[in-house]
């Protein structure tokens, strides 16, 4: 119980900050939609953050845009289209599948297939490979080992 209280106390300043930075509307369902979409949109100022995470002024503005457009009755696809028209595919964390992104989408699969193909080819070749015949000397040594007349430990060390 005391631990729980401690965790709660530690979270208090975080919660306070978050409430301060984000101007939220009263509608929790709308807010949930805004945040869900915002997590898939990249902030152009802090490029490793989504506009849901970033508190850059532009991210706040764009979240407000998303909210406003939802309120105006637009759906997710229309809002994404609105932002892509202005900022390009760069705002999408999930890049679209098109000519310029073919390598991006198909590259890993092609690499996997190529790697698997190469491995299969190698394995099959190894099976078919005939080991080189033993020389007379090797033959004698092998026979001696099989007879038990040689000392394997010494042999292997030499």
């Amino acid at each position: 119980m005391r631990r729980l209280a401690l965790v709660a106390a530690l979270l208090l300043p975080v919660a306070g900050q978050a409430g301060e930075a984000v101007p939220v509307s009263d509608d929790p369902v709308l807010e949930e939609r805004v945040m869900r979409l915002s997590h898939d949109l990249r902030c152009l100022v802090c490029q490793n953050q989504s506009i849901a995470e970033s508190n850059a002024p532009l991210a706040v503005d764009l979240r407000n845009q998303v909210r406003e457009q939802f309120l105006a009755g637009k759906d997710e696809a229309a809002v994404v289209e609105y932002l892509v028209a202005r900022y390009g595919d760069f705002v999408l964390y999930l890049p679209p599948f098109k000519g310029a992104t073919l390598l991006l989408w198909l590259g890993p699969g092609l690499l996997l297939v190529a790697g698997a193909g190469w491995l299969a080819w190698r394995l099959r070749r190894r099976v078919r490979e005939v080991p080189p015949p033993l020389s007379a000397e090797e033959h004698a040594r092998a026979s001696a080992l099989l007879d038990g007349s040689a000392k394997p430990s010494q042999e292997s060390r030499s």
Binding site: V45, D61, R86
Partner: peptide, 12 residues
């Protein structure tokens, strides 16, 4: 309010 900025894709 930066609305024109958004329309022009201004990010900095």
């Amino acid at each position: 309010d930066g609305r024109i900025g958004i329309d022009y894709g201004v990010y900095g």
